[in-house]
């Protein structure tokens, strides 16, 4: 276990050291800036909604396009090639030789991916809160929109900052599972473009087309579908129990750990 964590630390250092973060963070800021109108304007009723900073995160995290095409694909762009890059740049030769086994090496990658999903989600949520505060106004309490659950569903018993934190952690957990699947696919076809193509195809086919076609049935067990916290709230939204979602996410992580370790036993590094 300690060797896995040490390997994960090395992976993390490399993953955080890429210049891609300098592209991803401004891109995310721009996307949030452009999307805040979705929270502010009431397109059905007309006029402005009474919203504040705390509405930015839960409001935007019900937006399919923003979540899938910016949040998820941004993460895939940053971390999807964690395996492929190590393999093609010769880093694997330095770390695999020191790892107790390839299983440890793969588990370390998954652990690093988990930490990266939290780091990424935190940066994204900070951007949302900063821009949300500047555009929607700062406040310590829930807005009238939040109190009426107009724009998004929520637990009314939770203070807004706590609710926002829960949404963030849940998104990070779901993102970890999605990233792990993309990384597993890249072990089958170790090409630099595989993670991006796999991520895009998954978002298009599984994230957008399938739920639009059918919001019930097995398609709801797609790990990508778990990205939306609002699927757990009542009949107005796509209903799925929290337990089921957590089971889907944990099963996905476990399956990627097992399949990845098995795949790497035969992989050319």
């Amino acid at each position: 276990m300690r060797a896995t964590l040490r390997l994960a630390r090395a992976d993390l250092s490399r993953a955080l050291g890429t210049y891609r973060w300098l592209v991803a963070i401004p891109a995310w800021f721009a996307a949030v800036y452009l999307s805040l109108g979705y929270v502010r304007y009431d397109y059905d009723g007309g006029g402005l909604r009474p919203v504040n900073v705390w509405d930015a995160v839960p409001g935007l995290f019900t937006n399919t396009i923003l979540v899938l095409f910016v949040f998820v694909l941004g993460f895939v762009f940053l971390t999807g090639d964690l395996y492929v890059r190590d393999r093609t740049l010769g880093v694997a030769s330095m770390t695999v030789l020191r790892a107790p086994s390839r299983g440890h090496w793969w588990s370390a990658k998954l652990c690093a991916l988990g930490v990266l999903s939290v780091v990424y989600s935190t940066l994204v949520f900070v951007a949302m809160l900063l821009l949300g505060g500047l555009q929607l106004g700062w406040s310590a309490t829930a807005s009238p929109t939040a109190l009426r659950s107009e724009l998004y569903p929520r637990w009314t018993e939770l203070p807004m900052p706590v609710f926002v934190l829960v949404v963030m952690l849940y998104a990070a957990l779901a993102l970890w599972a999605v990233g792990a699947v993309v990384m597993l696919i890249s072990t089958l076809m170790p090409h630099p473009l595989t993670p991006a193509v796999a991520g895009l195809l998954w978002v298009l086919l599984g994230g957008v087309l399938a739920p639009l076609a059918s919001r019930t049935g097995w398609t709801r067990l797609d790990p990508l579908y778990q990205m939306f916290y609002n699927i757990h709230f009542g009949p107005d939204h796509f209903t799925l129990g929290w337990t089921t979602s957590f089971m889907v996410i944990l099963t996905t992580l476990l399956a990627t750990a097992v399949l990845g370790s098995w795949r790497l036993r035969y992989a050319e590094l």
Partner: peptide, 23 residues
């Protein structure tokens, strides 16, 4: 390896420490 790669923002010593900690 033919073209060894390291963590670009760390010093040589820190890079080696990172690898040495694995074993």
């Amino acid at each position: 390896a033919e073209h060894p790669r390291f963590v670009p923002y760390l010093s040589a010593r820190k890079n080696l420490r990172l690898l040495a900690r694995i074993r």
